[in-house]
Design a protein around this nucleic acid. Structure first.
Lengths: 236, 236
DNA sequence: GCTCGGAGGATTGTATACGATTTTTTGCGT
DNA sequence: ACGCAAAAAATCGTATACAATCCTCCGAGC
């Protein structure tokens, strides 16, 4: 999927250096190697990648447009810490757009695409059975890639980019509010959706997608954690 | 709408200076004072706003994330010149998300909101009957604001931001491919949609929205204009 | 002992400087 | 005159420098 996506999307912005840094940090965030709230100082980022603050800053700026990083004036950049309300909005957005993307994708899907999707699924399953951090991270990415691949198949680069943003932000939300340590994305549900598409049961596929998203959301505990950094943490 | 929108959205990024510049340029693009393809050199932008290239660059960068400006490596930034295919994708995206936004908005809409919408409509109508460039520009903005206000009412800041991007890019597309010099957005159709919402006829409202978008799109001539900058322009 | 205030350090905001790349111009040769 | 090549100008890419702001910590005062 990576090469295909890059190819059709045209390289657009480039911005040489900042691009790589942005992608590297985004990947770290999505794979949850960077936790929400972590400070990303411009100097540190610059030193880490051996570039000047100029580029580090540009990368952080870019990530803030995607909602993965929040920069506070004169205070610095932090890995985004989505509020429960933001989390709800992210999933509401996904419920709103994913059925539409699915419908669009279904009208253009080729046997090749289905092959690729099933391939991705197998990979996902394989990772699920493996142990270890790296496998867990790869699994997180793979489960998101399923949704992204559908967006890619839909042929609409704009919706694809939007979905990339939503999936990435979802990863943050799950990191923050997810309860089950299990897979972030019901694996079997992905397969069911593909099957429904194959069988040309569009409406059912959409229903499954909605259920799937609701499933992910149901695993969240979206109560305001007011950090209780006050004395409440010790009283009682 | 402006103050309400600002208030609920939280100021987020700030980035002080670049923010203003970005907004100013975006407004100029959306109101079509800047034509697609116009070069926006960093120095010129900087001089124009009396800031350094650093901030000018940041603003252009930001606009490129919104798809309003395309920056080409080592060549500079230009007001985006959406291809016919891009144009189709923009409207496909709108058809995909606007009904959903409308549904969401309908469940939360208050009498106050309806009042504001009707107010906006009256303003739009007033501008339509006026002559002159400034009136035309204000009308363009007002017709877009109708869609944006619905997104705002929906209460989903993420969808709202996405719609802002789509509406802005639509303006570029219409500037490039629009045929009728008339209003870019069927004025009466907006009113019909509000009425349908008021009457609680949700499905009809969505249908009207889809027709409305199709209407706008139908006014476009999306044939590849290969600029015919060659001799073809004079042969024959 | 606690609070308030200020010096010091750290970090961001913005400007400027310099090297790299592209575009334009100029001038030579044919 | 035309075309091509090299120099000049313009513009971007990145680094560095300086100013402004914020945070920390220490000391004076109550």
């Amino acid at each position: 999927m990576k090469s295909a996506a890059k190819a059709m999307q045209a390289e657009e912005v480039a911005e040489t250096g900042a691009h790589q840094i942005r992608d590297a940090i985004r990947e770290a965030i999505v794979e949850r190697r960077l936790s929400p709230g972590t400070k990303l100082s411009e100097s540190d980022v610059g030193n880490l990648f051996n570039v000047s603050r100029t580029l580090a800053r540009a990368a952080l700026q870019a990530l803030s447009y995607e909602g993965l990083v929040s920069v506070e004036k004169n205070r610095g950049a932090f890995v985004a810490y989505p509020s429960p309300d933001e989390a709800r909005q992210i999933f509401a957005a996904r419920r709103l757009v994913e059925p539409g993307i699915l419908r669009e994708a279904a009208t253009r899907i080729t046997p090749d695409d289905i092959g690729n999707l099933r391939e991705l699924l197998r990979e996902e399953g394989r990772l699920m059975s493996e142990r270890g951090q790296t496998a867990r991270r790869a699994e997180i990415k793979a489960s998101g890639d399923f949704h992204l691949m559908l967006a890619e198949i839909s042929g609409n680069a704009i919706m694809q980019r939007f979905m990339e943003e939503l999936v990435a932000r979802s990863s943050l939300v799950i990191a923050l509010y997810g309860q089950s340590t299990a897979s972030s994305c019901g694996h079997s549900e992905h397969g069911d959706i593909i099957s429904a598409i194959e069988d040309n049961e569009l409406d059912r596929a959409c229903q499954l997608m909605l259920h799937h998203i609701a499933h992910i959301e149901a695993d969240l505990d979206l109560r305001e954690r007011k950090s209780l950094g006050l004395k409440e943490a010790f009283e009682l």
